[in-house]
Design a protein around this nucleic acid. Structure first.
Lengths: 240, 240
DNA sequence: ACCTGAACACCGTTCAAGT
DNA sequence: ACCTGAACACCGTTCAAGT
């Protein structure tokens, strides 16, 4: 899935300025420290995003953060209650920038469609981070304004409040839930599925045999097909 | 979410007969062993399901399996290559029984709808197991015949092969991806979202303020709303 | 053929001690 | 006020040794 390609440097857009390269202080074999950039919530979130993007979310450990920032692993607890709180902050960064680079064109259905696809693209650029959004135990801070904006699009299309809410929830589920799966390392290749299905006895699974060459071809096309079904369905529910 | 309620005993339906209660051999303080039930792939999968259902997937560890079955933790490696292979076997059990207790009534759209809801109910009864299906790196064995059957429903409705395949993929994504999120421990309560959104300044997020009382009310209603949008959309694509 | 037990290389987190 | 370092209670997995 080529959408997995990581845009270099993009990981820290919208975050504070990145810490300057921290001239190698060479304070006698020790890591860095001693006058180096101070440990902050920002530098920790920055490092979390960088590690998750380049090595996957599993690589984000307290010890890894420590060596990355030249600090004792347990120093993280001075800035975040626990690991979960740090990951939540990283998830918040991901959601906060979800409108960056997207401009509405005025047609509610078209805006909805391009925005969801835009958000999906951003999420796929940070596969290691997305799962944290989906599994966070409360709304990340920046979720409120994003929710408000999407609800606004649905209302402007003529949906009543009830349908707008339900439409929002379905679109959010489709975007987040499906993209989480698409961004997981296992989704990288659909080959195992296709090969295994192609090798089945056609007599026992006739419909599958017929469909096998078409199955699991393009994750993005699949996502768009479902998205269009949903938006078309909402379109037919609009008031007069 | 009441759907989380675990049906007692249901965890092992369809699996080999359960091991008899294994009369307490009391072989001198040691766990059991010494004439007790032998360790098999079945007893390991059985224990995995039981532990995941009652204590969550995180509780499934090699050491926990060892004490559960009265055996050294590393004995598992005699029957499964690694932990991932054991979890895959448990996921396979979940998918294998997905048609149990469901009967088609002959109308393709209605059958599709009731089947998907039936599958969702089964998955929600085993929240700790479902995530393993979604994240497995290849098709679980029993997936082929299930895929064949669902494709058959779509074809019988008059969809051509291309639309049937795309429809199947969208329905699968909707079922698995959304239900994985709904079954995650964090989804247990929607309260944090509702409370946090209700407390926002209405002037800044007018649409959200208006919608807040309706948001995140019922995960199942939300799922059905999306499912109906998808099935209705497919219905309109049928041939003459 | 199957199981044991020690060992290895990891985790997140706590807490007393340093500066 | 912030960081260190040892320690605790865990992980999955390997491998030589037992039976």
């Amino acid at each position: 899935m080529r959408a997995r390609a990581t845009v270099p440097g993009a990981a820290v857009d919208g975050l504070r300025e990145r810490v300057p390269p921290s001239r190698p202080v060479t304070d006698g074999g020790r890591r860095r420290r001693a006058g180096a950039a101070p440990l902050t919530r920002e530098s920790l979130v920055d490092a979390t995003i960088r590690i998750a993007d380049t090595e996957g979310s599993a690589a984000v450990t307290m010890r890894r953060l420590g060596t990355e920032l030249g600090v004792d692993p347990t120093a993280v607890y001075r800035h975040f209650r626990d690991k979960q709180a740090l990951l939540q902050a990283a998830a918040d960064w991901l959601v906060a920038g979800v409108f960056d680079g997207w401009t509405p064109r005025g047609d509610w259905a078209d805006d909805l469609r391009t925005f969801i696809l835009h958000a999906r693209r951003r999420y796929l650029e940070h596969p290691g981070l997305l799962v944290l959004v989906a599994s966070s135990s409360g709304p990340v801070q920046s979720e409120a304004s994003a929710t408000d904006r999407v609800l606004g699009m649905l209302r402007s299309g003529g949906l009543d409040v009830e349908d707008a809410v339900r439409g929002f929830e379905v679109l959010q589920d489709w975007l987040v839930a499906v993209t989480v799966l698409d961004a997981s390392p296992q989704a990288e290749s659909q080959e195992p599925w296709r090969r295994s299905f192609a090798a089945l006895p056609a007599a026992e699974v006739p419909h599958l045999a017929e469909a096998a060459p078409l199955l699991y071809e393009d994750l993005d096309a699949r996502f768009r097909f479902g998205l269009d079904l949903i938006i078309d369905g909402l379109d037919r529910r609009r008031g007069p």
